[in-house]
Design a protein around this nucleic acid. Sequence first.
DNA 1: TCATTAACACGGG
DNA 2: CCCGTGTTAATGA
Length: 212
Amino acid sequence: MTTSELSAIKYLFDAELLDEMRQEGRIANFSPGEEIMDIGQQVTRFPIILSGSLKVMTENEKGQEMLLYFLESGDTCAMTMQCCFGNKKSSIRVVSETDTEILFVPVQKMEEWLLKYSSWRSFVFDNYQARLDEMLHAVDQLAFDNLEERLYKYLKDKAMVNRNPKIEITHHQAATDLNTSRVVVSRLMKKLEKQNLIAQERGTVKILEFEG
DNA sequence: TCATTAACACGGG
DNA sequence: CCCGTGTTAATGA
């Protein structure tokens, strides 16, 4: 592994830790829609995102999927981290949202690095923090029961991780991710359109706020 | 009141 | 024709 390959995260860690990552880590690439990790799977390697973005989902008892959050470059998955420390099986499904490049590190290294590197401790702590904040916000939105805001945030998140104000998505997909019905999404999309927040074509939605 | 399910029409590819 | 979209009606929480 060359130095340039870890350039996306080099400012996050000590030089020495980066060296270890180069030695111990493996880089893998994924295309949109590819599954990186599934529910029930034993976690043996730990992902750090170099480029692209991931979608993290969970499932309820009935097998319905539910979107938790998106992850981007420099992020890692707090849920996976949790699984690694506890040597548990994954409670989430992770799917590539865009083309992604991921650094995988063996789980044994993680605890070792906690003792050795303060930059690793910060990384782990910050990621927990960020995810907890995001989850709290999600709970807030659910509690206040405003699907319109959730939908708009979902669209904006998707546009942000794709670095593109134009999103390729159908009302059906949005409904699945938000755990609601297509009828509602169609209605709310129309509403957002009337407020000049979005523009729609068949299979695409454009966030007007993000247009350059 | 607002979401869900089912059903339907319209239109583009 | 199939799929995505936009509506409506009936029902339930």
